[in-house]
């Protein structure tokens, strides 16, 4: 018996060592993107779409600015350029619906400690991607409200070489995978200059709604409000309330648009990893269409859409 519990103890220690190791890799990944310059080509694949892209990444060392340029290589060129993490320019496909990136909700870096509350991070083996040897991590959800990831990190630099999004049955929802990565050749200046497809970014005019004008009675554990705006719809001119929630890895957006007396059905749809669920709700200000869009399971989105409420204050108005 004693032997058995000793075995258990050693076993659990080995497990926690292994988990710590996996967390270490995740921390190294975060540092790698800040410190390591690289250039490469990757593919992105989801249900119904396959595309190829190039990336040039200049780490901001010795008080130089960090620069990153991404360019879609097939079809219409889609391009994005970031300087010191800020969007400098972008094609309309990637930047025409942007609302302020700064403000009360600055981007939060991935926090491996916090992530471990909602995901189990494990090192599961080794692989080879883009001709480089890699370490395989799985980031699996501890509940059924989010998806899991499989990450293949470059053994030498910790850069992510392959990232798979998996549903609860282990089915692949999307894949981002490098086919070529160069971490040693210095980047030439012309590769870090935006091309003609990269247009200056105009952010949409927004205002901040009253705190708590809308809320969700239920959220999957770990998800918090990351952003909240109201803005006129480019389609109808109606004021749309926009909320974004995240758990540090997965994100979903909530759109609330007044319907007035329009007859509109509830709807749902799935685009690769992204689910869309729309549902009509009644408020004191008339009927609204609530739409939840995010990289979360359908059940999660359905439950959120049913939990959105207008605040009492608004209802009294």
């Amino acid at each position: 018996m004693r032997f058995f519990s000793l075995l258990l103890l050693v076993g659990s220690m080995a497990m926690s060592v292994q988990a710590a190791d996996a967390q270490n890799w995740l921390s190294r990944l975060l540092k790698a993107e800040q410190r390591q310059s690289f250039q490469g080509v990757f593919v992105y694949e989801r249900n119904g779409s396959f595309s190829t892209h190039a990336i040039w990444h200049q780490a901001g060392q010795n008080d130089g600015e960090s620069r990153e340029r991404l360019l879609r290589l097939d079809g219409a060129p889609v391009e994005v350029m970031r300087v010191d993490g800020r969007l400098k320019c972008g094609s309309s496909a990637v930047a025409d619906q942007l609302i302020e990136g700064e403000g009360p909700w600055p981007p939060r870096p991935l926090d491996p400690q916090k992530l471990a509350e909602w995901y189990e991070i494990r090192m599961v083996g080794e692989s080879r991607v883009a001709g480089r040897s890699a370490v395989v991590l799985t980031i699996l959800p501890r509940d059924q409200y989010r998806y899991g990831f499989e990450l293949h990190l470059d053994r030498e630099t910790s850069l992510p070489l392959k990232s798979l999004l998996l549903n609860e049955k282990g089915q692949l929802l999307e894949r981002l995978q490098f086919t070529q990565l160069d971490t040693s050749t210095p980047l030439t200046k012309d590769k870090l200059e935006p091309g003609p497809a990269c247009q200056p970014v105009e952010v949409l005019q927004t205002s901040t709604p009253k705190q708590g004008a809308w809320r969700s009675e239920w959220l999957p554990p770990g998800f918090t409000l990351r952003s909240m705006h109201t803005q006129p719809s480019p389609v109808s001119g109606e004021n749309i309330t926009y909320l974004m929630y995240g758990d540090g890895l997965a994100r979903f957006s909530v759109f609330i648009e007044p319907l007035h007396s329009a007859l509109v059905e509830d709807a749902r749809s799935q685009l690769g990893p992204t689910v869309v669920v729309s549902k009509r709700i009644s408020t004191a200000d008339g009927d609204m269409m609530v739409t939840v869009i995010g990289e979360v399971p359908l059940g999660t989105a359905e439950r959120i859409v049913l939990s959105i409420r207008a605040s009492e204050e608004q209802a009294d108005r």
Binding site: L87, L98, G101, P109, Y242, G246, F252
Partner: peptide
């Protein structure tokens, strides 16, 4: 808007 905002808010 969702995917674009994700790229601004995400790490």
């Amino acid at each position: 808007q969702h995917v674009q905002q994700s790229s601004v808010n995400g790490a």
